[in-house]
Structures are given as C-alpha cells and as structure tokens.
C-alpha cells in the first residue's frame, strides 16, 4: 500500500514538474524575447562580445556598477557627434562606479579602430555579433541608442536617437551611482 502511494506521488510529481517548467519557461522568456524591447525596470539583456583588444566583455560582469550602453555605428553622424560627450562623462565618473560600453553595430574592425583613435575614445568598445543579436535583444532600430543600467542590472532609463543630452546623461548616472 505504502509502495503504491509513493509510486503515485512520483508519477504525479513528474507531471507537476513538467507543468511548472512550462510556466517558468514561458514567463521567464517572456521578459526578453516575447515582448521584444526591454522597458524601464526590466533586466537588461546580457551579452558577451569582443572588444577591440580581442577580449570578451560580459555585461553581467559589471553588476554593482552603473553601465551606460551606447549602440552606435561608424557611419552614423549623430553617433560621431555624441562621442565626445560620452568620453567626458566617462573620465568624470569612471572611478566612481561607471562603465560605458559602446556597442558597435557591425564588425568593421579596421574602420572602428581608426574611428576610436580619431575621436580619442578610451571607454570600452565592443563589436556586436555579425547578426546583431545584442541590438535585436534591445530592439534597436535607428541609432544611436543609449541605455543606462542600474547597479542591480535593471534598466534605469534610455534615449533613442542622438546626439545625447549631456545634462540628462550626467544626472541619470549620478542618481544611480552606488
């Protein structure tokens, strides 16, 4: 009798786990892929991309810091115009818990490296994958786009288009610094 009860419990548990997994799977994935573009307060989609020095940069590796993600392209004029603003802000806050990552939409290594030299950019620049997975995860369409991520990994605010307003950038960073 006891054996039979355990048998039943095990079978029912198997189906319970399957149901639970379905729900978890659905609602977990909902946050990133089904609704598409992350909103303020959502966890920022993680990524791991190569920088110009051939090192892998992982977004989640910067938890505890304010991360500014700037999606840009070497051909985009507003991106070129706002670069000095980011460089300034980077120099001001980099020792106070700020990371700026420039995500380049494309893998034109020679062009990007020259651009970075030309504009004297010192914050990390990474290349998105060849099929722009990171840009898709953030729902990027026109560039530039700027996301500010809180130390807990959720999105504090974002701006679509540019050039960026330096006051908004500086104050949003300051409000979220650890």
């Amino acid at each position: 009798m006891n054996q039979k009860r355990w048998f039943r419990i095990v079978i029912l548990l198997i189906f319970l786990v399957m149901s639970g997994y379905t729900l978890w799977n659905h609602f977990y994935h909902d946050q990133v892929s089904v609704t598409g573009i992350p909103k303020i307060g959502d966890p920022a989609p993680d990524f791991e991309l190569y920088n110009l020095e051939n090192q892998k940069i992982k977004l989640s590796g910067y938890s505890g810091k304010v991360v500014v993600l700037n999606f840009w392209g070497h051909w985009c004029e507003p991106c070129q115009q706002e670069m000095p603003t980011f460089e300034k802000v980077w120099n001001k806050f980099k020792d106070k818990g700020l990371v700026i990552i420039g995500v380049h939409l494309g893998q034109e290594a020679v062009t990007v490296k020259h651009f970075v030299d030309q504009y004297g950019i010192t914050f990390p620049i990474v290349y998105d994958t060849s099929d722009l997975q990171t840009a898709h995860a953030y729902g990027i369409d026109p560039i530039p786009d700027t996301y500010i991520i809180k130390p807990d990994g959720t999105i504090a605010d974002f701006r679509i288009g540019g050039p960026i307003d330096p006051d908004w950038l500086a104050s949003t960073i300051q409000n979220n610094l650890p």
Partner: peptide, 15 residues
Amino acid sequence: WWLTLLLILIGTSLV
C-alpha cells in the same frame, strides 16, 4: 503555455 499545459494534463490522464 496554456496549450502546453493542456497537453501535459492529457499526458497525465493517459498515463
């Protein structure tokens, strides 16, 4: 998720 859940329920019932 609801269709998957129904399929799991049918599976439970079948077993």
